[in-house]
């Protein structure tokens, strides 16, 4: 078990390094000279030169990389090329907003995905099951922001149940915070809910056809007890989907935040991309990948707990 944890940890760190390195050179290759983007087209050559020197892009690329990396491993992602504030401060300000809706959306997907998945798995072919099948087809493919736009129109602008836009810090008002993240989270979660539910439903049916389930029934166990066995064996696949959804939700959040005017990493990503603000982009990438690595690590632990065969490996 210990060597398993160590192996996953090393793998995660290597991944982080590869992604960070790849992103660094990719961003520099894609952007080239960042100063026109940062200063606008009206800036003079002298202004551009001054900025180039200030942010250090006049140095060799490898020197820049080493400089960035040696700071990054200590958790310092440098300063923004536009505002000259520390990237860490920007992230610390923005991440809570994004994480609020992503975590909330993940919770929604887990809870409703399991409820709907089990209900459909227990009664395949029922009305609910057919609705799930239809919904999974449509919602799986529809992008979150599209759903978000519809939700804003119907529930916020049409019915006035929620604030259409903006973010309320939980320190200010917990109720306002929940109200402000509910619609964005739902917009994000809808696709994930049907994915999890569909996965669990199919896993449920597959496990239900296993020989050992018949044997459990033949031992006289009640329906509820048999369902528990089926659920446990069907859960690894659903958990894997849930963990994968988390990555998708992080990406989806960027667009959904723009629809709801939430001050999360979405706006930051958009602006930084348009300006060619590389330190911020790098910080964003590394931090999100860290989250994903942690989530995958947790997933592995849970899978090992659910499935004894994994533990033996």
């Amino acid at each position: 078990m210990f060597s398993f944890i160590a192996k996953r940890l090393v793998s995660g760190i290597v991944l982080l390094f590869v992604v960070a390195t790849g992103t660094f050179f990719l961003a520099h290759a894609a952007i080239g000279d960042p100063t026109p983007g940062l200063l606008g087209n009206s800036a003079t050559a002298v202004q551009q030169d001054a900025l180039r020197h200030k942010i250090g892009v006049d140095r060799p690329l490898l020197t820049q990389f080493w400089d960035w990396l040696s700071h990054a491993v200590t958790g310092d992602f440098g300063t923004s090329w536009r505002t000259f504030t520390p990237v860490n401060a920007d992230l610390a300000q923005r991440l809570p907003v994004t994480l609020s809706i992503v975590v909330f959306a993940t919770l929604l997907s887990a809870v409703f995905g399991v409820i709907i998945g089990v209900a459909c798995g227990l009664r395949p072919g029922s009305v609910l099951d057919r609705i799930l099948k239809f919904a999974s087809v449509v919602l799986f493919a529809l992008p979150g922001y599209w759903v978000a736009i519809v939700l804003v129109n119907v529930f916020a602008l049409g019915l006035g149940w929620f604030n259409a836009v903006g973010y309320v810090d939980p320190v200010v008002s917990v109720g306002g915070w929940i109200q402000s993240i509910t619609l964005p989270s739902i917009a994000l979660a809808l696709g994930a809910i049907v994915m999890v539910a569909e996965q669990l439903r199919n896993g449920f049916l597959e496990i239900n056809n296993q020989d050992y389930v018949r044997t459990l029934r033949a031992r006289g166990l009640s329906k509820g007890r048999v369902t528990r066995h089926v659920l446990r064996n069907a859960s690894p696949a659903a958990l894997t989907v849930l963990a994968m959804m988390f990555v998708g939700l992080l990406g989806g959040a960027i667009v959904v935040e723009l629809v709801f005017y939430l001050p999360g990493i979405g706006q930051l990503t958009q602006q930084s991309s348009q300006n060619g603000n590389i330190p911020v982009l790098l910080g964003l990438t590394v931090v999100t990948v860290v989250f994903v690595v942690v989530i995958n690590f947790l997933l592995d632990l849970v899978l090992g707990w659910v499935n004894p065969k994994v533990r033996d490996r």
Binding site: L26, A30, V247, G276, V289
Partner: peptide
């Protein structure tokens, strides 16, 4: 490993990186 790695990267952010700048 590469495939798992790619799946761990939020694609949209990377696309924004690629799309960054003018080119």
């Amino acid at each position: 490993w590469i495939s798992d790695g790619l799946q761990s990267i939020p694609g949209l952010i990377m696309l924004m990186v690629v799309a960054a700048g003018t080119g």
